[in-house]
Structures are given as structure tokens and as C-alpha cells.
Design a protein around this nucleic acid. Structure first.
Lengths: 246, 246
DNA sequence: GAGTGGTCTAGACCACGGT
DNA sequence: CCGTGGTCTAGACCACTCG
């Protein structure tokens, strides 16, 4: 009458498959190596393709695999550590390492952002778009919301949208004193536009980093940065140079 | 010959469904309200159940829905902000707010953790298990790895494993001076034991927070905390009291 | 026991990347 | 063009919760 419940609750096939595949990845495959295709793997393990795909999805979520339509499934390199520490207490800048200003327009921000900025729901703000690149790969897409009140010196609000205007807004931001910032991280799924720039499909898992920049008691700007969850590990430390692979 | 590509690349059904459902959630449903069951919803939208489920999975990943087997699908409350800021520069403690020491044993840590601790791969360490609770709900499960060298004053290493020993290890840790800490966040999937304690299924998405505690130039302890990605938004700010939905 | 979400199957067709 | 992963279907059965 032991109370142990061994095998009374058998684990799902896809979960068991995930474990088997994970061990195979550790011992038999090198980074970048291409796996057999899904139909072949499913046959080899004696399961339906949908079941095999469930296991692959898990491993992709964990950053162990990379799948590309028309190409195949490859063994992913360990996630790269990406510093998102808040310690520098600095405004985003056109010359930020890794960040590339892409565009700027005027638009009404989403309701949640408007609330953070303490704006009426229908007030347009500058929306600066930046990409964070590393080794030619896009790691993150950022949308920076800057109320006109935060950049009073900006020339002609109806100037042509584009990269030049993005740089101008970032330059003007430097003139404000930065009192502090809040940061939060949560799981999200890539919207269509983010997905395109991150070279992922819509709905791909992303880590959403929301930053609120404070100046003179107000929220002077809000940044929403979506990082590829499959390839990025966000680091916050003072000595952000350590590695851990799950 | 406009260059606009409207409908030339129709979006997948499940993605469109996700959007439709998300809008319905905003306008027609209250938090906690229970949705029609999957078979009914699939019929109503004229899709197969699997397709409907793909849309629901997206919304669950985004923290908009909560699904429980045998019960149904309900509208999830906004994610709660959970402070994981590193600013206090303190050791984990038996009396940490929200953290509940559960157990302690001796075990050989995973290879990745052993590397952080600069240990040989086969050396056992104290493994303290803690749960982070809020309003009776488990938010996170933590595994704290403490080499014996970090708690030299600990009585009899072969003392009975359990909650008392967990408290003893945490108490001994306070005696070390804390030089600093590193922290990283990445996406993972819940292992079976974590899943059980977090009241989720194995493979559920979690935010893995890895902390390295530094003392006297060494890594004195490593904590791996897995937070429920569906219900938690990790906050790092100095004034961690802001909200953002979506 | 009735009803829910979770797992699994065996197919089909589509969209994309490279040859 | 062919092979890949991505989407979708229409079923079946299982595990869980609750009355």
C-alpha cells in the first residue's frame, strides 16, 4: 500500500518525446545541425505528425530548436544574454549601442500606454521605432512613445516622418533631466508588424519590456520593447557576463 | 497598381480568430466570466476544434484567458505586477515577504548551475525549495542552490531534510556579506515538479529568473525561480506600482 | 455521470525556400 | 520544381472537476 503513484498517471506522449529529443540534442547533435524532417521523425517515433510537432514546439519555446518553413529544423545555439539593466539611468539615444532608429510618426498610442503617460485617450504622440541588432540579427523591436510636451524644441511637428525625425526626437529627449525609470517584463506574442521585423511568424513568443521614463514628476516617455523569446535571455546584473543554459 | 498587398497574404484563421476573440473579451466579457465551451465556440465560428484551440492558446499565452480541465475557460484578470528588483541587495531569507520555505535536501545541481557555482559536476549542495505565494496562489517556485562552503556553521549536514533545515540554511546565509548579484530572465517551460506546485500542466510557459549571489569574489549561491508566465508581470523599477495591460 | 479541456490520430492542402 | 514546416479538418478517447 505505498502511497507512491508511479505510472498511475502516465505522462503525455508529446512530453515524453520532448524529453527523449532533448537528450538526443545534448548527446548527438551539434549546434546548427539540421534534424530529420517532421514526417520522418514522426514515423521514426511511431506518432502522428501533430504529436511530434507538439514536442518540437516545446523545445523551440525553450530555445533549443529553430524551425524555418521551407528549410527545416535546426539545433539552436544557446540564448544570448542581452543587457537590459536600468542602472545607467540614461535616455534612449540615437547612438545607443545596438539600437538602430528606423522610423518616427505621430499616432494615438494604445489605451494602456496613454494611461501610463497620463494622456487623454485621443492625443497623438511621437512614436519612434527602433530595432536592436546583434550580428546582423534583429533581437528586439521597440516602440517609443514621446508626448509632444516632452520635446518642446522639436521643429515642425508635421515634418516628414522617417529616420531623420526619429533621430531628432531622440536628440531632443536628451535635454530633459531623467529622474528615474520603471521597468517590467512579461510574456507576450508578437503582433504582425513586430513579427515581420523580428523574422518570426505572428504570435511568436516575445518578452515584452515596458519602460517608463520619469522626469520632473511626470512620465516623460514610455518604451515598449519586444524581444525574441527564443533567442534572448535578458540580463539585469551589474556583471552581466554569465551564462546559463536551462 | 498600388503596392498595397491587401488580402494577397490572408492571415491564418487561428490568428484572425484570436483577434476577434480578443475584441469580444474587451467589450463583452467581464473578468472571471466563463466562456462557452470549445466545441460550441468552434461550431459558432465554423472551424475545427483544433483551430479554435490554437486561438485560445494564444490568448492564454498573453494572459487574457485561463483554462482549466474539467471546469472551462474563463476571462483572466490583468497580470499582477511582481517585484523582482535587485535593489535591496539582500540574501533570501526565511521571512521574505511572500516567500515560503518548503523543503531542503542535498543533491547534485544541474550542470549549468554547477558551472555558475564553480563546482565540480558531481558535488552535492544544499537545495532549498521555496514557494512565492500571493493571496493563496502560488506565483513562483524557487530552487536555491547553496554550496556547503557558503554555510560552514550549519549543524550536521545529514540532519533530516525538510522545512526546518530550509530555514536553517537561509539563516546561516545571512552571516555572509553580500557583494552583489546578477539576475537574468528568460522564457522556459515548467518541469513536472514546478508545474505541480504552480498548479499548471507540464510544459506551461514560465519566466525563469536566475540569480547569482556574490560574496567575497565567489558565487555563494544560485537561485532559479520559475514564475507563472500567464499570471505574472515581473517589475524591476524603483516605484514598481504601475500597470499596463497587453 | 455529465461536461469540460487535454491528447492523439491520419489524413489534406498551403506557403515558403532553395535548386 | 521539390521538400520543408505551417495550417486545418473531423473525428476519437482520456483525465479531470463537480454536482
Amino acid at each position: 500500500m505505498g502511497t507512491t503513484q508511479l505510472e498511475t498517471v502516465p505522462e503525455p506522449k508529446y512530453w515524453h518525446l520532448r524529453t527523449v529529443l532533448a537528450e538526443a540534442l545534448d548527446s548527438e547533435f551539434a549546434v546548427g545541425e539540421i534534424l530529420p524532417n517532421e514526417r520522418e521523425l514522426a514515423a521514426r517515433f511511431g506518432v502522428a505528425r501533430a504529436t511530434l510537432r507538439q514536442a518540437l514546439e516545446q523545445l523551440e519555446l525553450e530555445g533549443r530548436l529553430q524551425r524555418r518553413r521551407g528549410v527545416g529544423t535546426t539545433v539552436a545555439p544557446p540564448r544570448m544574454g542581452v543587457d537590459v539593466s536600468t542602472s545607467q539611468h540614461a535616455w534612449p539615444d540615437a547612438s545607443d549601442e545596438g539600437w538602430d532608429p528606423v522610423d518616427c510618426a505621430s499616432a494615438v498610442p494604445p489605451a494602456a500606454v496613454a494611461r501610463l503617460l497620463e494622456l487623454a485617450g485621443d492625443e497623438a504622440v511621437h512614436t519612434v521605432r527602433r530595432l536592436r541588432l546583434s550580428h546582423g540579427q534583429a533581437l528586439a523591436a521597440e516602440q517609443l512613445y514621446v508626448p509632444a510636451a516632452s520635446v518642446p524644441g522639436l521643429p515642425a511637428a508635421d515634418a516628414p516622418a522617417g529616420q531623420d525625425r526619429a533621430r531628432a526626437v531622440l536628440r531632443e529627449l536628451q535635454r530633459l533631466s531623467l529622474a528615474g525609470q520603471d521597468r517590467s517584463v512579461e510574456l507576450g506574442s508578437a503582433r504582425a508588424d513586430d513579427a515581420r521585423e523580428l523574422d518570426r511568424l505572428p504570435g511568436a513568443p516575445v518578452l515584452v519590456v515596458t519602460t517608463r521614463y520619469l522626469s520632473a514628476g511626470r512620465t516623460a516617455a514610455v518604451s515598449v520593447a519586444t524581444y525574441r523569446a527564443d533567442t534572448c535571455r535578458l540580463t539585469f546584473g551589474d556583471a552581466g557576463d554569465f551564462r546559463i543554459a536551462s
